[in-house]
């Protein structure tokens, strides 16, 4: 009973905050409300027994996305204070369209074929062979590792997409992220005390990801947050985008992933298949490399393209 009341309140709250972020007057408010929405949403994920997703949603869906959105809102939001929408009749059509989509989907809840489908049994049946304890990690790195590999390429291409927006002259230079101009000693303090803790936590997240919720994405996001903090506080110089060490960190994860994929051709004879008995160590090695790469890529995505005039 209490659980149902809680769920109902949570569902209403998520819908309400979601609607509020669509309607908010100022764009900066809309973005901040959206971040709150993301945090509430991770609570929903906990409630439907998807802890891995809850962590990802909090880290990437709300945290990393929120960081980018806030920066963009402050940069572009000043030009127009009020919310501009399409004119009268179009607005009515949009409302009708949106509500019919929502109602149609909602009604499907009652007509989805009665017997729920699930691959949970299949996943668990083969999971012991891989040595992993977390079934979600099993899906991500054993059964559907091809998706995960392609998704790494997607991240890499997204980074190139961001870099491509810099100018020819500044190619390979320092990203346009501005370190805090004033001497804010507290931020520097935070940037010196938090990263060791964050680093430990990121390693922990990745390490336990094989057996309990956690993993490379979540660990990587924590890593990225620490790095952005350090860059913003000006504690460490932001590296040049052409720096070989930086490039190595970016590709470390994909390289290990691809290497293990090709290793599968040699033994046991199939791309992305793991040699008997070596699945777990290989996956852990892959996740460690991926944590580093994801952390660096997420950090660089928020740092933006190299931009000579903003760098100083």
């Amino acid at each position: 009973m209490t659980e149902q009341v809680f769920d109902a309140a949570l569902a209403l709250l998520v819908m309400g905050v979601g609607a509020w972020s669509m309607m908010a007057g100022r764009i900066t408010s809309a973005v901040i409300i959206f971040i709150v929405y993301g945090l509430l949403l991770s609570l929903v994920w906990v409630r439907i027994a998807a802890i891995d997703v809850a962590l990802t949603e909090a880290a990437i869906g709300s945290g990393a996305t929120g960081m980018l959105l806030i920066a963009a809102a402050y940069k572009t939001g000043r030009e127009s204070g009020a919310r501009e929408t399409v004119s009268g009749s179009l607005h009515v059509i949009a409302v009708l369209l949106a509500s019919s989509v929502a109602l149609g989907l909602a009604s499907l809840a009652f007509v989805l074929p009665g017997e729920p489908v699930s691959l949970a049994g299949d996943v668990l049946r083969s999971l012991p062979d891989s040595g992993l304890g977390n079934p979600v990690a099993g899906v991500l790195f054993v059964y559907r590792s091809f998706d995960t590999l392609l998704e790494k390429i997607v991240l890499l291409v997204a980074l190139l997409g961001v870099w491509s927006l810099g100018s020819d002259r500044d190619w390979g230079g320092i990203p346009g992220l501005k370190p805090f101009a004033q001497k804010h000693s507290v931020l520097v303090l935070l940037a010196r005390t938090l990263p060791p803790i964050g680093l430990t936590y990121a390693i922990y997240m990745t390490w336990v990801g094989a057996d309990v919720p956690g993993g490379a994405f979540q660990g990587g996001t924590v890593l990225a947050a620490m790095w952005v903090l350090v860059m913003l506080a000006g504690v460490r110089q932001i590296p040049r985008l052409s720096s070989p060490a930086l490039r190595a960190a970016i590709v470390a994860g994909p390289v290990v992933f691809l290497a293990i994929g090709f290793l599968g051709f040699v033994s046991p004879g199939q791309f992305l298949a793991y040699p008997q008995g070596f699945a777990k160590p290989l996956i852990v090695a892959m996740e460690i490399a991926l944590t580093l790469s994801i952390g660096v890529i997420l950090g660089l995505l928020s740092a933006g393209p190299s931009n000579g005039k903003d760098a100083r």
Binding site: I153, L156, V255, L258, F271
Partner: peptide, 22 residues
């Protein structure tokens, strides 16, 4: 069938190499 996986993975590997080797 491995040809199909190569058709997808070789260009992906090449991107990784382009970025990594600068």
């Amino acid at each position: 069938g491995y040809l199909l996986v190569l058709a997808i993975i070789l260009p992906a590997t090449a991107i990784v190499a382009l970025v990594g080797l600068g």
